[in-house]
């Protein structure tokens, strides 16, 4: 309501003003997470490495989206758009991967490379 807005830093305009402490907190967490993701790489955790890297990246991305991009304060429909776009990227990745990994075994090994003359470097193939 406008009364509430009035004592909120005399803000009459549209949209929501994000508190400084939130902005700086997000900045610091992002930098710490960046440091963390670099450090984690030094340990060999097998296939967990990429999972951890992606989890940290997603954590960072969520912070940016929620606070820098105001999604936390926005109309929920904007978040729906973001999430559904990611969902469609996921569908795209999963279905393509499903197919491509399923037929890899039926590819004749070195068929294509058997077509090329090893005497020529890659850029003279055509």
């Amino acid at each position: 309501m406008s009364e509430a807005t009035a004592h909120h830093e005399e803000h009459h305009g549209v949209g929501h003003i994000v508190d400084w402490r939130v902005l700086i907190g997000v900045l610091v967490s992002l930098l710490i997470l960046t440091w963390l993701t670099v450090k984690v790489t030094e340990f060999d955790l097998g296939s967990l490495n990429i999972v951890i890297a992606l989890v940290i990246a997603t954590l960072k991305a969520s912070l940016v989206c929620l606070f820098f991009m105001h999604l936390y304060y926005d109309q929920p429909f904007n978040s729906i758009i973001l999430v559904s776009s990611l969902l469609f990227v996921l569908i795209f990745i999963l279905f393509s991967l499903l197919d491509l990994s399923a037929y890899q075994s039926s590819i004749i090994p070195d068929y294509i490379s058997s077509l090329r003359d090893p005497a020529y470097p890659l850029d003279q193939l055509k």
Binding site: F92, F95, S96, D99, L100, Y103, I112, L115, R116, L122, D123, L125, K126
Partner: peptide
């Protein structure tokens, strides 16, 4: 550039192009 994503001569997969295109 012949980046080798779709063109089998450069190590790519032409079926992947079809996935991209039909998506």
């Amino acid at each position: 550039l012949g980046v080798g994503i779709f063109d089998p001569t450069y190590g790519g997969d032409p079926v992947l192009f079809q996935h991209f295109f039909w998506f």
